[in-house]
Simulated assay, not measured.
Amino acid sequence: MVDLQTWFGIQQLYADYASAVDSGHWDLWPEFFTEQCVYKLQPRENFERGFPLCTLSFTSKGMLKDRVYGIQETLYHDPYYQRHVVGAPMVRRVEDGRIHAEANYAVFRTKLDKESTVFNVGRYIDTLVPTPEGLKFAERLCVYDSEMIPNSIIYPI
């Protein structure tokens, strides 16, 4: 479905994304997306039933940058580290130059004075597009498995 160079580009994009959101350098996060993009965090039940309700929903790179500003400047929360473990992406199809891919993920959270815990588990459902800077996300839907989530999700999944 995709050539070897594109496959490596997809792998690198997923690895770089996980590294960026785990590093705490939040300004890196929006740069993985196109200007007109979609980023949603949605429970599996809503996704499978076709319900539009999402926990988080952003529809432009500007909105992602606004979230970064909120994380850095306005949101008050108990700080924590997160660590992503992402499975190998599976290319589902390629249409009109857009790559539709999926990957399973698990995010672990470590609060400064506590042990690490499983924070969020699910799958990414992505649409990738080539840009002059390399592959970027046009859409990233994070479909999480559990109906029970912590009372606040501050950092990107």
Rank of each mutant, 00 (worst) to 15 (best):
T74A: 10
I99Y: 01
R109W: 04
F108N: 06
V118T: 05
Y80N: 05
R109M: 05
H77R: 14
D66L: 12
V107I: 10
T117L: 10
Y80I: 04
R123A: 01
F108L: 12
V85N: 13
Y76K: 15
L112W: 15
V85D: 11
K65G: 04
G62L: 13
K114L: 07
G70R: 09
G87H: 04
H84G: 11
Y69A: 13
N120W: 00
R83N: 00
L112Q: 14
L64P: 14
D66W: 08
Y69R: 14
F108C: 09
N104A: 06
R123S: 01
I99V: 01
K114Y: 12
S116C: 09
A103K: 02
R123C: 02
Y124H: 00
P79W: 00
D96E: 14
Y105P: 00
A103E: 01
F58Y: 12
L75E: 06
A103W: 01
I71G: 02
T110E: 07
E73K: 15
A101E: 00
H84Q: 08
R67V: 07
Q82S: 03
Q72L: 12
Y69E: 11
R109S: 08
L75Y: 09
V91W: 12
T110C: 07
L64Y: 07
H84N: 13
H77F: 15
L64W: 09
F58W: 09
R83Q: 06
A101K: 01
N120R: 03
G122Y: 00
D66V: 03
L112M: 09
V118C: 05
E102M: 05
M90Q: 14
V68S: 05
S60L: 09
K61A: 11
K65L: 05
V121H: 02
M63K: 11
L75G: 02
Q72E: 13
G97T: 03
S60T: 09
Y81L: 12
K111S: 07
V86G: 04
P79E: 07
H100S: 05
G87A: 14
L64H: 09
R98G: 03
V121L: 02
Y124S: 04
K114F: 04
H100C: 09
